[in-house]
Each structure stands twice: as C-alpha cells, then as structure tokens.
C-alpha cells in the first residue's frame, strides 16, 4: 500500500506533464514515454561518465529537457493548426517518439541499464517493513516538484495566464495573454518534469528505449482516469492505479491486477466520461 502511494507519486510526476500539455494546447503527447526514458538516460550519462549524483544531476537534466520541449514545440507543435490539431498531434508526437527511440538505441544500444547510487538498493525499517530509500526520495522529489508546479499555476501571474489559456484560449488572447508563448513554456515545463520522473523510474527499473511503450500506455491511462487537463486528477489517478494494482496483486493474484484496475476505469468513465476531475468546458473540440 505504502509502495503504491510512493510509486504512484512518481507516475503522477510523469503524467502531470502530459496532462498540462493537453490542457493548455490540446496536444496528446505520445512522445511523453520516450522523453521519460530520455530523462533516465541523461541521468545515466551524468552518473556513469561524470560521477554526478542522480538527484544533483536534475539541476542539469531538468533545464535540458525544458529546452528540448521548447525546441520541439517551436519546430513541430506550433505548426499544427485547425480542427485536426489534436489528432495530428498524435501522429507528429509518435514520429518524434520513433526518432528519439532510434537515436537512443544507436547511442546506448538496446541492452537494458539501471541507474545506480547508494540509496537505490538500500532500505530502512519502519512499522515492521523495509522502506526503500529510493521510493522515499522519489516521493519527496515528486511532492516538491508538484507543489512548485501548483504554486506556479495558482500563485503567480504566469500561472494565471496558463489557467486562462487552459479555460479558453480565444478569451485569453482577447485579454492580452500571449497564448503562443504560454503554450511554448507549458510544453517545455511538461517535458522538463519527465527528467525527474525518468530519473526515479530508471533507478527503480532496468530500462532501454523500448520501455517507453509500457510507460506511455500507463501515463495515458492515468490522465484519462484523472481527467485530461487536471493536475490533481493525474495525482489521484496515478496513486489509485498503482495502489489498486499492488493490493490486488498481493491479496488476490497478480493476474487480476490490471483487469481490476481497468474494470474500475470503465466504471468511472461510464459515470464521469470526463474523468475524476476533468472539466468538459476545459476541452477544446
């Protein structure tokens, strides 16, 4: 149960970027999974070749992926116009995903790797169980970053611009908000958080570029359940997905772990097609 909450927070971190990008830009970023893996590989490079601690390395990897996000948005996303923008974004980001996957395979080979640090394999006793340090540190990191994101969104002028764009892009533009600039920065932020998510994922799982396929399916499920565009929804859905899966795996059987979660997903979507916290009005057709 505790593992589920801690792991869920890391998934929430990865899914937050996805839901933020959709909420503001109506873009479904299929490349989010491979960008998480790119974040993991950047941490791997800094750790193995430069001896930089995984968490300290985030000082470099988060801004790097922010720049990657800005470049991708300017080169590809900003050019997507018209009513087919959302569906076209799936194709474009899938293509980007394939390019990054191929490049990672060429640079790092297809052999799996895992991030190493003293806290990756170690644990400490608490309430009769052993809690791995990496889950605790990952949870703290997720809380810090999600809180920072929340403060930025709800306590700053720029956050108000994002929320206005999220609610209605046309109205936001009419009141003088530079929606294009907000979109670019949002896309950059959405990608930047994958650096942190990727680092924790890479420390808890062996990975290669192909791992991104498992990741993106889980991330998409999280934002659909939480409500596309909802940060709180992404957090709750991620914790629900991982915790429910873990509890069913232990109490019942691992075989029923995924079916049970998807059963819950179908029930929730039948009752609330917009997801747990999704707002129909926030979507742009």
């Amino acid at each position: 149960m505790l593992d589920g909450v801690l792991t869920g927070s890391v998934y929430a971190l990865m899914a937050t970027g996805l839901t933020l990008i959709f909420g503001v830009m109506n873009i479904i970023n299929i490349a989010q999974g491979i960008l998480v893996i790119l974040g993991a590989y950047l941490s791997y490079t800094l750790s193995v070749h430069f001896g930089i601690d995984l968490f300290v390395g985030l000082i470099i990897t988060i801004p790097t992926l922010f720049v990657v996000g800005v470049v991708v948005e300017r080169l590809f996303m900003a050019r997507l116009k018209g009513p087919e923008r959302t569906s076209m974004s799936i194709l474009v980001t899938y293509a980007i995903s394939l390019i990054i996957e191929g490049s990672l395979n060429m640079i790092y080979s297809i052999n799996v790797v895992q991030l190493k640090a003293w806290y990756v394999d170690k644990s400490f006793p608490i309430f009769g169980v052993y809690l791995p340090y990496i889950y605790l540190f990952g949870f703290i990191l997720a809380v810090v970053l999600l809180t920072s994101l929340y403060i930025m969104l709800y306590r700053t002028r720029f956050g108000a611009s994002i929320r206005a764009s999220l609610a209605d892009q046309v109205a936001a533009a009419l009141v003088g908000i530079n929606v294009a600039r907000v979109s670019t920065i949002c896309f950059g932020l959405g990608i930047a958080v994958t650096a942190a998510g990727g680092m924790v994922y890479g420390a808890t799982n062996a990975f290669n570029a192909s791992t991104s396929y498992d990741l993106i399916s889980r991330l998409l499920t999280i934002i659909v359940l939480g409500g596309m565009g909802s940060l709180g929804g992404a957090l709750l859905a991620a914790i629900l997905m991982v915790t429910l899966g873990d509890v069913v795996a232990v109490v019942w059987s691992p075989i029923w772990s995924s079916p049970t979660f998807f059963f819950v997903l179908v029930i929730v979507l039948s009752l609330r097609p917009q997801g747990l916290f999704g707002k129909q009005s926030a979507r742009v057709a």
């Binding site: 589920g4 889980r218 873990d246 075989i255 995924s258």
Partner: peptide
C-alpha cells in the same frame, strides 16, 4: 506459487509477497 501477467511493469508487490 504465483503467476503474473507478461505485461507487468511493477514487480515490487509480487517480489515483496
């Protein structure tokens, strides 16, 4: 004795069991 699905990505609860 337990069987887990091939698509499992989080092995922690099974390994803990």
């Amino acid at each position: 004795y337990s069987v887990f699905p091939a698509e499992t990505t989080d092995y922690t609860p099974i390994a803990d069991a």
